[in-house]
Structures are given as structure tokens and as C-alpha cells.
């Protein structure tokens, strides 16, 4: 048994909140550069270059890349040999509180969905924990902006709809989103599971680096096919027109019921942020 003090988790979450919001993950930055280099439409190429300027400015001026510093989605893979000393969940909320305060990040959480009073410190975090073998604790902070989150969709398809039904739903989601989610987008697609599980799968898919295809060749091919099709829609960067509508797309799947084919698309933007530490 290994003991990790709750304060260590707090410090890690605080650091990760700041890092995730100021430095884009290398795979997302690389995808942006690759798309800019391959963009055939001049206006779209210029727009992508401006998005890259923004990344440089954020670094130089120590500013968040985007003002929507998001809902703090915190994913923890907790080794089953780890004993957390102190209140585990409160340690995470405290980390968000510290990170968003010290990092001059925007506080975007309201305590109640209808009465809508801002909590003032971006808490609570949205916490997902998975117990895994070992004695490590892996913490990933994903600040999720809501311009793109609001464009996400879920459907309970019929098994007869099959892969064509899934493809149609994903492409339709992008078409409906249009310029709203700050394209070029990043898409997390969940297929299978149950109503609640499929949304979690879609969110989880956003954690996978864009240069890492699904390990199952069938789904890797489907990812590539969908990405190509989406990039023929013409929406383009910021919706001004162009090839680059989507930077990357990841599919996560789960076993499902004989009667169902759930599918969910979690829409993210060109500022798809995540930062990880292993404790």
C-alpha cells in the first residue's frame, strides 16, 4: 500500500488546470500545423495561421489560449494499491479552486442549472475515477469549453441502422454545429454501451492524442473515413469556408444490448485541452 496525501493531489490538479489552459497538447498543435500546410483555400489557411499566432501569444503573454477556460473535467486513474490520505474528491475541487484563482482563469460554473449563481471558483470539478492495478495515480485535467459542448449530440439508433447510421449521425452533428463550436473541431465519438455510458465514451475519446488511431483496425479505418468525409463539408476554419473542418476524430466503443446502438458525439474545438501528471 502506498500513501498519497490529498494535498499532493490538490497541488497536481492546480498545476494541471493552469498548464492545460495555456499550452496546447503537442498532438493538437501538430494537427493544426499539418492542416494549415495542407489547406488549399487561402482564406482558410490564413485563419489557421492566426489560430497558431494565438497559441504563441498565449505562451508569450502567459494568457489562457481561450477565455472559456471551461468546466474542469478531471479524470483519475487510481491504482488499487494507493491509499489517499484525506478527502479525495475535496482535494480535486480544492486543486481547481487554487488553479483557477492563481492562474487567473475564468470561473464559469453556476451552482444550479436553473437558478444560475456562479460558484466563483470554477468548482465543482466533474470527476471521473477508474480503479486500475498498481500503486500510481494518474491525473488528467480537461478544461472543456461549452461553445463546442453545446453542439454535442446523442442518439439511440436501431441495430439495423448499423455503421451507415452511425456515420450519418456523426456527419449530421458536424453539419448542424456549423460555425458554432469554433472549427476546426475535434470530435469524440462513443458507440455502444447504454444511454449514460455512450456519452462518457464520447468524452473519454477526447483524451486520446489525435495522432493515435483506435487500436482496432476496423475502428481506425472508420475514424479515418469519417474525418475525410467531414473535411469535404466545406465549413472550414471558423465556418468561413475551407477544407479544414475537423482536426481529428476518435472513436471509443463498448459492448451493448441486442436491441440497441447508442451513439454520442462530444464536440470539441481547435483548443482541445488536456494535461496529465502521474503521481
Amino acid at each position: 500500500m502506498r500513501t498519497i496525501p490529498a494535498a499532493e493531489i490538490t497541488a497536481s490538479v492546480a498545476r494541471l488546470c493552469v498548464r492545460a489552459n495555456t499550452v496546447l497538447p503537442p498532438d493538437v498543435a501538430a494537427a493544426l500545423e499539418a492542416c494549415r500546410a495542407a489547406e488549399p483555400w487561402p482564406l482558410a489557411g490564413e485563419t489557421l495561421a492566426l489560430l497558431q499566432d494565438n497559441l504563441a501569444q498565449a505562451r508569450k503573454r502567459d494568457l489562457p489560449i481561450c477565455q472559456d477556460t471551461g468546466m474542469s473535467c478531471v479524470f483519475v486513474e487510481l491504482g488499487q494499491e494507493v491509499h489517499v490520505e484525506g478527502d479525495f474528491e475535496e482535494a480535486i475541487h480544492q486543486g481547481v479552486r487554487q488553479g483557477y484563482g492563481q492562474g487567473y482563469l475564468r470561473k464559469s460554473m453556476v451552482a444550479d442549472p436553473l437558478r444560475r449563481v456562479n460558484t466563483g471558483d470554477n468548482t465543482p470539478a466533474s470527476i471521473t475515477v477508474r480503479i486500475v492495478p498498481g500503486d500510481q495515480c494518474t491525473v488528467t485535467v480537461v478544461p472543456k469549453g461549452f461553445g463546442s459542448e453545446n453542439m454535442s449530440r446523442l442518439a439511440m439508433l436501431k441495430p439495423a441502422d448499423g455503421v451507415e447510421g452511425v456515420k450519418h449521425f456523426v456527419v449530421e452533428t458536424v453539419r448542424l454545429a456549423g460555425p458554432n463550436p469554433c472549427p476546426p473541431m475535434v470530435l469524440g465519438v462513443g458507440i455502444g454501451g447504454s444511454f449514460d455510458k455512450v456519452a462518457a465514451l464520447a468524452k473519454h475519446a477526447l483524451l486520446r492524442p489525435l495522432n493515435q488511431p483506435n487500436p482496432d483496425p476496423y475502428y481506425a479505418a472508420l475514424e479515418a473515413e469519417l474525418l475525410e468525409e467531414i473535411n469535404t463539408l466545406g465549413i472550414g476554419p471558423q465556418g468561413f469556408g475551407g477544407k479544414t473542418t475537423c482536426l481529428g476524430l476518435a472513436i471509443e466503443t463498448a459492448p451493448t444490448h441486442v436491441a440497441g446502438l447508442p451513439v454520442a458525439v462530444n464536440v470539441s474545438c481547435h483548443v482541445t485541452r488536456r494535461a496529465t501528471e502521474v503521481l
Binding site: D53, L63, P64, N118, G147, Q238, C269
Partner: peptide, 24 residues
């Protein structure tokens, strides 16, 4: 430009909250 908040910040020379400070 959506998602280019750092770039837009460079154009702002003055800022003053004029009302509803409670809205953060």
C-alpha cells in the same frame, strides 16, 4: 476569431466594469 482569446486581448487598451459586477 473563436478560441483566439490571447490574440484578441492585444487589441484592448482600456477596460472598465460599468455595471452588474455581481455577474463576474
Amino acid at each position: 476569431l473563436g478560441g483566439a482569446g490571447a490574440l484578441m486581448a492585444a487589441c484592448v487598451k482600456k477596460l472598465e466594469v460599468i455595471c452588474w459586477e455581481d455577474l463576474g
